[in-house]
Computed example of a mutant assay.
Amino acid sequence: MAKKEKERELDEYLDHLYIHVNEVEHFALFSGLTVQQFIRSFSDLPALLLLNHQYEDASFNIHTQLEFIVQDQYLRFVKDYAERPIALCLMDFTDEKKLNMLSPQEQAELLYIAHKKEAFRSPFYHHLLNRFVYLTDEDNEITKIYFRDMADLHILIAGVFNQYISDKSKSTAFWRKKNNVVLSQLSVEKIEEHEDFYEDGVLMSLYKMDKTNYGLEIRSLPEDIFPDEVLGDLKQHLEKPADLLIVVS
């Protein structure tokens, strides 16, 4: 079995995600993550405050002089972003009335986060009840997400790979005589079981094991690696045997 894993070719892998977690400051760095995947994983968020963007159909809040979108705009927003990706900073919030309660100091902090891509104190606000702050560059090579509850990290990781499996299954459903196959699902619990790996930086690689099962390989990477270079150096990283294999069934 070990020999087979070692000989897997690059083109046999279906999807890759790099993750490096900073538990102390409650954020994670990603490579291979898109805003579409993030919003699909948390489509129940009531609204998104756009701190840095170029979306033209957003609503405007007079108090903060900032723009925002609500749930029924998410699909249009991600479609627009896919067509012209730019540097992006957004955070969720519960109600526009809560935006009107932000103090000048809090509004200044939001602008600081959007400009510096970092927070000088906790970026979670009592009035907004936000769960996330999402930041990415124009090339989508590095994404940084602050999590109020790090349990949401596990939901996001499982969601990204389950989205891929679901989309892959839908693309082949037309050719099936019977479309009653139960889809493989990566459970949040399986991701959470191995959370200690993520603090040092890991490459997670998905491949198909057989007709119904997928394998998710986890490889620890050096701490001093540049996240934006990981996916460009996949061949080199995949030459190292996986530290862990999660069977997705």
Score class of each variant (00 low, 15 high):
Val181Asp: 15
Asn179Pro: 06
Phe124Ala: 04
Gly215Phe: 09
Ala87Asn: 10
Leu45Ser: 07
His115Pro: 03
Lys177Ile: 13
His16Thr: 06
Ile155Tyr: 09
Leu29Cys: 04
Tyr81Gly: 04
Val21Gln: 05
Ile155Pro: 01
Gln36His: 10
Thr64Gly: 01
Ile142Asn: 00
Asp72Arg: 09
Glu193Thr: 07
Leu183Asp: 09
Lys116Trp: 11
Asn100His: 09
Val21Thr: 08
Tyr81Pro: 03
Asp233Glu: 12
His26Thr: 10
Leu102Asn: 04
Tyr13Lys: 06
Lys117Asp: 12
Asp167Thr: 11
His127Gln: 13
Phe38Cys: 00
Ile39Val: 13
Ile191Val: 15
Ile19Leu: 12
Arg84Lys: 14
Arg148Phe: 14
Pro227Ala: 07
Arg121Gly: 08
Gln105Val: 15
Asn52Ile: 07
Lys79Tyr: 11
His127Lys: 12
Tyr112Lys: 13
Leu221Thr: 02
His53Val: 01
Met1Leu: 07
Asn213Gly: 10
Phe30Ala: 00
Glu7Ala: 12
Gln71Cys: 05
Ile225Arg: 08
Phe68Gln: 05
Pro241Gln: 07
Ile246Gln: 05
Arg40Gln: 11
Ala151Ile: 06
Ile157Val: 15
Asp80Arg: 10
Leu231Arg: 06
Pro222Lys: 05
His26Ile: 06
Gln71Arg: 14
Glu96Gln: 15
Phe30Val: 07
Asp15Arg: 15
Leu75Arg: 13
Asp44Val: 09
Phe27Arg: 01
Glu118Val: 08
Ala242Trp: 06
Arg8Tyr: 10
Pro104Asn: 01
Asp80Met: 02
Ser184Lys: 02
Glu141Val: 09
Leu231Phe: 02
Cys89Asp: 04
Tyr112Leu: 13
Leu244Phe: 09
Lys190Leu: 07
Leu88Pro: 06
Asp72Val: 05
Arg219Gly: 02
Phe120Tyr: 15
Asn180Trp: 02
Val230Cys: 03
Leu244His: 11
Gly232Ala: 00
Tyr81Ile: 03
Gln65Leu: 10
Ala108Arg: 15
Tyr125Lys: 05
Lys177Val: 14
Leu183Pro: 01
Glu67Cys: 12
Arg176Phe: 08
Leu51Tyr: 03
Leu129Asn: 14
His53Phe: 05
Ile145Val: 09
Val21Cys: 02
Asp152Pro: 01
Asn213Trp: 11
Lys178Pro: 02
Arg121Ile: 11
Ala108Asp: 15
Glu23Ile: 15
Thr64Phe: 09
Glu195Gly: 03
Ser41Met: 02
Leu129Gln: 14
Phe77Glu: 02
Tyr214His: 07
Asp224Lys: 10
Ala47Glu: 06
His53Arg: 00
Ser103Val: 02
Ile19Phe: 05
Leu128Cys: 04
Tyr13Ile: 00
Glu25Trp: 13
His115Ile: 10
Glu189Gly: 08
Leu245His: 13
Tyr81Leu: 08
Ile19His: 04
Arg131Ala: 07
Gly159Leu: 06
Thr172Gly: 02
Glu9Pro: 06
Val133Ser: 01
Gln73His: 11
Ile157Tyr: 01
Ser187Lys: 15
Leu49Met: 06
His16Val: 04
Asp243Ala: 05
Leu234Gly: 04
Glu23Asp: 14
Leu10Pro: 05
Gly32Ala: 04
Arg176Ser: 14
Glu5Asp: 15
Ala242Thr: 08
Ala47Ser: 12
His127Cys: 10
